[in-house]
Amino acid sequence: MIPQPGGSTTNNTQPTRDNNLAMGNPSGASVGDPNNYLMVKSAYTLSYNRRRGIANWVSWHLSTAWKGTVRRGNDFRADATLPRDWPVIQTADYTNTGFDRGHLCPSDDRDGSVEDNSATFLLTNIVPEAPRHNREVWKELEDYCRNLLNGSNELYIIAGTTGTGGTGSNGEASKLADGKITVPASLWKVIVVLPVGSNDLQRVNSNTRVIAVNIPNRQTAADKPWYAYTLSIDDLERRTGYDFLSNLPADLQQILESRIDGGVN
């Protein structure tokens, strides 16, 4: 480990539950913008888009402190914390559409308590996802992230959507539920990998591993492994208009965001 200036020289090696938005707010989300609406949950933080009916992104911390043996709840439901005059997205809006109710923050990343797991089934954390995308290539990436915990790592993850129009089991679609829900063209993810410790922001350095992917929301995306879709964070920023890892020093962002991870370490 190479500590940054001002960082602690000692580390807590006991996994903890840390700030879900520690690496920064990539879109500058706030409660004043209905299409970039900041929602802070105990299990994750997200930016919701009223016009699209889905999240722009969801950010969460993952360590073994979040893990447990709670069973998957499957209690998909509307998010009652949205403003009352906004369109309500219901589970039935996804029925027979040819798209899965796909998680951004996965259920299996939050099985340490019933409350945490239940939070992942709020429809503000759900997007229309091509079935093979959801059950194969995206799931493989989710499993890969959780397997990294076995190496005494912790992760900071941001996942989101961009573009309009995907291909599900019924063919192409751009909108669901009479236009209430936008089908994204792709799902992306940024992953920061750190050894378990404390003072996480101060411990990110030029050798820190970062992974970025952008996977088309199509059935055929599953014909390739997830690491076939890796790209640099710089490239992902150009595609999304977001500023990832914004809480890190600018010179460190420049180094980390220019790399493309091989995805097979």
Rank of each mutant, 00 (worst) to 15 (best):
residue 6 G to W: 11
residue 6 G to D: 06
residue 6 G to C: 04
residue 7 G to T: 11
residue 7 G to I: 02
residue 8 S to F: 08
residue 9 T to M: 10
residue 10 T to W: 04
residue 11 N to P: 00
residue 12 N to M: 05
residue 12 N to R: 07
residue 13 T to V: 14
residue 14 Q to S: 15
residue 14 Q to R: 15
residue 14 Q to N: 15
residue 15 P to R: 11
residue 15 P to C: 09
residue 16 T to Y: 03
residue 16 T to R: 12
residue 16 T to F: 05
residue 16 T to C: 05
residue 16 T to S: 13
residue 17 R to G: 01
residue 17 R to T: 08
residue 18 D to G: 04
residue 18 D to N: 08
residue 18 D to E: 11
residue 18 D to R: 07
residue 18 D to F: 00
residue 19 N to G: 01
residue 22 A to L: 15
residue 22 A to I: 15
residue 22 A to N: 07
residue 23 M to T: 13
residue 24 G to F: 08
residue 25 N to L: 12
residue 27 S to E: 08
residue 29 A to C: 15
residue 29 A to M: 13
residue 30 S to T: 15
residue 30 S to Q: 08
residue 31 V to D: 06
residue 31 V to I: 11
residue 32 G to N: 15
residue 33 D to A: 11
residue 34 P to K: 13
residue 34 P to R: 12
residue 34 P to Q: 10
residue 35 N to M: 07
residue 36 N to K: 07
residue 37 Y to W: 10
residue 38 L to E: 02
residue 39 M to A: 03
residue 39 M to E: 01
residue 39 M to K: 02
residue 40 V to A: 05
residue 40 V to W: 01
residue 41 K to E: 13
residue 41 K to W: 06
residue 41 K to Y: 14
residue 42 S to M: 01
residue 42 S to L: 05
residue 42 S to D: 11
residue 42 S to W: 00
residue 42 S to H: 08
residue 43 A to Y: 05
residue 44 Y to W: 06
residue 46 L to G: 00
residue 46 L to N: 02
residue 47 S to R: 01
residue 47 S to A: 13
residue 47 S to N: 03
residue 47 S to F: 01
residue 47 S to K: 02
residue 48 Y to V: 09
residue 48 Y to A: 07
residue 49 N to W: 01
residue 49 N to K: 00
residue 49 N to M: 02
residue 50 R to E: 02
residue 50 R to L: 03
residue 51 R to T: 10
residue 51 R to W: 01
residue 52 R to V: 00
residue 52 R to D: 09
residue 52 R to G: 00
residue 52 R to M: 04
residue 53 G to W: 00
